[in-house]
């Protein structure tokens, strides 16, 4: 099936592995992704705080551009913040005609327009569990994730707020749990699975964010999880890149790799870890990979000397 693909800013930077693994599993699952032309940022959780009308118009341009492509009706976003902003704009334009009018008035300045309801905005997990389905995925599994203990982490924005038909339960979602089981993994109890990772608070008030991250890591560690599996770039970033800070801050010793659910699907389909962007985490996933009998052919650590390096020299780097 053909879908519009809105990667969002995170997937071309800090969540590149999410983009890589999404594209890697698309073909074997029969998903065709057509990128939205010249898409712009969704505004994350920042633009709505500064100017609501501009924030809606910003997202409106993406919806208008995507609808113009006409080759798909379902627009897929892998990032939770992108998903919620696109869905919220489409939903609220439909619910509040006055908003639709204003957004279209703004879009007119760029010769664009968007009729709410033209597109169905969906998160990547939604199309994987509902369009492809658990059974079809189970059949495609070549290397079951046997023996792996997984803490499935949903975060906030794919289960809340409720915008039209809910994707899952806002308090205790199950779709990622069932997906991980379909891949052969063992899902551990993870009561905090829909709690917040702190979002942008790592930047603004690290004490607030660190406590939220600590709780999540602690919960997963208590149940001996081999990995936390997530579906949001910021959840992945906060739990992975800040894990060493958490350990310093609280005197803990967490070593839990944080992976995207698309990477887990890829592993179960028998794809090499590197092709899924595994190895780009701060907290190594090597032990987890060995547990499922995959030798971690991770990306080589930068040694500074590469004889066949054809890239331009970095400042201060000596030739030869």
């Amino acid at each position: 099936m053909r879908y519009g693909y809105y990667p969002g800013c995170s997937l071309s930077g800090l969540a590149r592995p999410y983009d890589m693994s999404t594209k890697a599993i698309a073909e074997p699952l029969g998903i065709q992704l057509e990128e939205v032309e010249d898409w712009n940022c969704c505004g994350a959780t920042e633009y709505f705080a500064v100017n609501k009308m501009a924030a809606y118009a910003l997202v409106g341009r993406n919806l208008a551009n995507a609808a113009q492509q006409k080759s798909f009706t379902d627009l897929v976003a892998p990032c939770s913040a992108c998903y919620v902003n696109l869905r919220k704009t489409d939903h609220n334009m439909g619910k509040y005609p006055k908003l639709a009018q204003k957004v279209n008035k703004a879009l007119e300045a760029g010769d664009l327009s968007y009729d709410p309801g033209t597109l169905q905005v969906r998160h990547l997990i939604d199309i994987i569990v509902n369009d492809i389905g658990y059974d079809a995925i189970r059949e495609k599994v070549k290397e079951p994730l046997k023996g792996l203990r997984i803490a499935p982490y949903y975060g906030c924005l794919i289960v809340r707020p409720e915008l039209g038909e809910p994707l899952d339960d806002p308090e205790y979602p199950m779709s990622l749990d069932l997906l991980m089981e379909a891949l052969g993994a063992q899902v551990v109890d993870f009561p905090l699975k829909a709690h917040c990772c702190g979002g942008h608070m790592t930047q603004i008030s690290s004490d607030t964010a660190y406590e939220l991250i600590r709780r999540l890591l602690h919960n997963a560690a208590e149940y001996d999880a081999d990995a936390i599996v997530t579906l949001c770039p910021i959840c992945q970033l906060n739990l992975d890149a800040y894990q060493s800070n958490i350990n310093r801050h609280f005197g803990t010793d967490f070593k839990i790799p944080i992976l995207f659910f698309t990477q887990m699907i890829g592993l179960a389909l028998g794809m090499p870890p590197k092709s899924l962007g595994i190895g780009k985490e701060f907290v190594s996933a090597a032990a987890m990979l060995r547990k499922i009998g995959t030798e971690p052919e991770l990306e080589a650590a930068p040694t500074g000397k590469k004889q066949d390096d054809k890239s331009l020299p970095m400042p201060g780097k000596r030739e030869g």
């Binding site: 712009n40 118009a57 910003l58 341009r61 703004a106 007119e108």
Partner: peptide, 17 residues
């Protein structure tokens, strides 16, 4: 993005509302 001029025109219009 290619359409940065278009985006700015849209945002500027929205900010007047």
């Amino acid at each position: 993005i290619k359409g940065i001029g278009q985006l700015r025109a849209i945002l500027n219009k929205a900010k007047t509302m």
